[in-house]
Each structure stands twice: as structure tokens, then as C-alpha cells.
Design a protein around this nucleic acid. Structure first.
Lengths: 84, 84, 84, 84
DNA sequence: CCCTGAGGCTTCGTAC
DNA sequence: GTACGAAGCCTCAGGG
């Protein structure tokens, strides 16, 4: 068995591992993207305004401090809807 | 306790649930994106060409039929320009 | 009139010139980017596939040697994964 | 002369026109990018801090209102340098 | 040589 | 459904 052959095998195994781990993570990301879409659909079915929820999520993501004020959530939503 | 108050509470709880589930999924996606980056970095450290691995992953993820179609369309356009 | 004052004026004028020339060039670049978008839109309206035209333009702009090298590296990686 | 042939010619000419116009615009953009780089180099040669000028240009681009306040330019630069 | 930052491309969400 | 705009991803260049 040649040394080059072993090297190729080792390299191949390493590359395969890299690619597979990346693909697994990509699959897990995809699942969660699908789940997210389903939650939005479900919310829409319950009468919520999807666009506003997206906006809300964006705002909360942008300002982590806001996450502490759990109780302000509904207020933010109402404001966004002009329900003040 | 007014009926309107109860409705608000129920609605608020529902909205809260929606937003939290979305945010949890977003956090999980973020983790996996970070992991993916780390794998690419590690691969780079082992001497692999990151750009080529990305290309490889893209090809493996893509629908082969779509790829072939895109390639043939490109050939048509090349021909139209005399890029034989 | 102090020497420092003059220095500040001269420096300010020079800086202003630098910034304005950069901004003028940026504006001209912006115009051409808009024009480019319009050409793609027009092409799309005439039934051309924009993605493929972009691909074509990229290929024409790229160094053929680099392209070939990237392609061959990709083949090496594919082989390592047994993607014959 | 076949109809298909004419169609191909017409299509080819149209595609060629599209591609050439795009490439011409790309060339003009490239020129201006080069010019921009030269201005930065020249500024650097005159003792200006390129990074800070870039920052300044970015700020002005982001807030068009600031462009009216031509006189605040030097102040902004000084502030950025801690020369207040 | 690594690493940040700037630029360009692609995709997704939204508005018309 | 089309077109516009924003966000994320990828690539490359310049500076440390």
C-alpha cells in the first residue's frame, strides 16, 4: 500500500467529515426555518398580523435590552397596530 | 374581572408564545451558523481551500437537474455571442 | 490672524476637497450601477434570463487561467469524496 | 435564409448589446474606483488618516442631511481624531 | 499570513 | 406578479 494512497484516504476522510458536518448543520438550519414559517402560519390562522409579528421580532432582536421587559410585549404590538 | 381583560391576557399569552418560539428557533439557527463557520475555519487550518469546499457543498445541495439546465442555458447564451 | 488658524483653514480646505472628490466619484458610480440595473431589467423584459447574463458577464470578466485552476481544484475535491 | 437563422441573429445582436453595455458601465465604474483609491492614497501622502476619512464619507453618505452642514465637516473629523 | 472591512451578488419580504 | 429594498453570504484587497 503506497504512502500516497494512505494520504489520499486520510485527506478524503477528513474532507468528507468536514462536508458532512456542514451539511448536517445546514439540514438542521433548514428544519428550523421551516418550523419558523409554520409558527407564522399558525399565528396568522389565529388572527395575528404576521407582518407586525415579524416587525416585533426584528425590534426585539435589534435591542436585546428590550427582552428583559417581557411585559412590554403586548404594548409594543398594540402600538404597532395603532391600538393605543 | 372583565371579559375584555381575560381576552387580553389570553391573546397576550398566545402572542408571547409565538414570539418566544420564533426567537428560540432563531437562536438555534444562529448557533448552527456559528458552528458552520468554525468548521470552515478548522478546515482552512488543515490546509483545505474554503472557497472550493463552499462550492462543493453548493453543488451537492443543488438539484442536479437545475444545475444542468442552468449550464445548458449558459451555453446557449455563449453561442449567441459566438463564444465557442 | 494666527498661524494655527491658517493651518486649520488650509487643512480644512484640503480635506473638503478630498471628501468632495470621493463623493462625486461615488455618485458617478451610483449612476452607472442604476444604469446597469436598468439594462438587466430591460433584458428581462425582452425575455432574457438575468441570472444567466450575470453568469456570462462574470465569466467574460474573469481570468480564464484562474477559472481553470478553480475548476480543477474542485475536481480534486470531488474525487476525494468519490464524486466521480 | 431560414427564419430561425434570422431570429438567432436578432437575438444574438440583442444579447451582445446588453452584455456590451453592461461591460462598458462596469469599466467606467472600475475607473472611478481606481480614481477613488488614488484620492485616498494622495490624502494619505498628505498626512490624512485614510480610515477616518472613510468613516467620514460613510457617515455623510448615511445621513444626507449632514451634507448641508458643510461647515461641520472639519469638526466631525476632529472629533473622530479626539482633537476636540 | 491572518484578519478586518468594503463591495457585489443573491434571496427574501414587502409594497404597489 | 413585478419591482423595490433590506439582509445575509461570499469574495477580495489592504493593513497589522
Amino acid at each position: 500500500m503506497s504512502e500516497g494512497h494512505n494520504s489520499a484516504n486520510v485527506a478524503g476522510a477528513q474532507l468528507r467529515s468536514v462536508v458532512e458536518r456542514i451539511e448536517n448543520l445546514a439540514a438542521e438550519i433548514k428544519e428550523r426555518q421551516v418550523d419558523t414559517k409554520e409558527i407564522y402560519s399558525e399565528a396568522k390562522g389565529n388572527g395575528w398580523d404576521v407582518k407586525t409579528i415579524r416587525q416585533l421580532v426584528r425590534i426585539r432582536a435589534a435591542d436585546p435590552a428590550k427582552l428583559a421587559e417581557q411585559d412590554s410585549l403586548l404594548e409594543v404590538y398594540k402600538s404597532a397596530l395603532g391600538m393605543v
